[in-house]
């Protein structure tokens, strides 16, 4: 690629976090510092929240701590299908006509549950976006975060997360709970900068995750997270979605 054809600067990455509770998977993918971190949640909430909300809040907490800019920033939460375990439980209760429903389960089934608990836990009154992308989560979340920064937001916390799909509903989905979070700002960044995606004929590092990613969208950004964790200065190409290995973004680490 020639210098003049370089893609435009996209976003600064000021902090990142990941939550991948399955240690075996973490080892296989070379991801570290990925345990649950529910230190910001009140104890009662901690016990009641879903797997999806717990991994999302964990990754968000770690990304904000790592960025060192507090938690008072807009956030974009994007997941494939949201609080699907809670929804599944409620559908079972409805089928059994076992009324009344649990009010806690009901309000914890809304798609913006993780975003809502994060706002309460972080104290941020900035807008909390909640999007559903099924097989197109990370890129849609990145798009919305970019739109918010381009229209004036200083920083945006992007959280991409999924929980295990109930097997009775979608037996072929073998999702592992996973969340990644990035504190994004206007490019260029002090620490790392992501350039706009381009199509190349040279597939980038995809962490050999193609198969896992097909099963779980929240893992799409793991190659990016691993590069950030490695922290080697210079630039490298990362696939933003290993299902499309020809589409890569350049990551510049200072």
């Amino acid at each position: 690629m020639t210098e003049s054809a370089r893609p435009p600067l996209l976003l600064a990455i000021d902090g990142f976090g990941v939550c991948l509770p399955d240690q075996d998977l973490a080892t296989r993918t070379g991801i570290r510092d990925c345990e649950m971190d529910l230190s910001l949640l009140a104890p009662l909430v901690r016990r009641r929240t879903s797997q999806a909300t717990r991994v999302a809040v964990s990754a968000a907490t770690r990304a904000c701590r790592e960025a060192g800019q507090g938690t008072d920033m807009a956030a974009v939460f994007v997941s494939a299908i949201g609080e699907i375990q809670t929804t599944d439980k409620l559908c079972e209760v409805i089928t059994a006509a076992d009324f009344p429903l649990s009010p806690t389960l009901f309000h914890n089934s809304v798609h913006n549950t993780a975003a809502g608990y994060w706002s309460i836990a972080s104290g941020s009154k900035a807008p909390m976006q909640a999007m559903a992308g099924l097989n197109d989560c990370f890129r849609l979340g990145l798009l919305e975060a970019w739109l918010q920064i381009e229209t004036g937001a200083d920083r945006v916390l992007l959280v991409c997360y999924d929980e295990t799909m109930p097997s009775a509903l979608q037996p072929e989905y073998n999702w592992q709970p996973c969340a990644i979070a990035l504190v994004l700002g206007a490019a260029p960044g002090q620490r790392a900068t992501l350039l706009a995606p381009v199509i190349t004929n040279k597939p980038a590092d995809s962490l050999c995750l193609e198969q896992l990613v097909k099963e779980n969208q929240a893992m799409v950004a793991l190659p990016l997270i691993r590069r950030l964790q490695e922290g080697v200065s210079g630039s490298c190409q990362v696939a933003l979605d290993p299902c499309f290995p020809d589409t890569v973004a350049e990551l510049q680490i200072s």
């Binding site: 929804t87 409620l90 559908c91 409805i94 429903l101 649990s102 009010p103 009901f106 309000h107 089934s109």
Partner: peptide, 11 residues
Amino acid sequence: CRLTLNGFNSL
């Protein structure tokens, strides 16, 4: 749907 009607009723 049943979920939202019964859910808001539970609250």
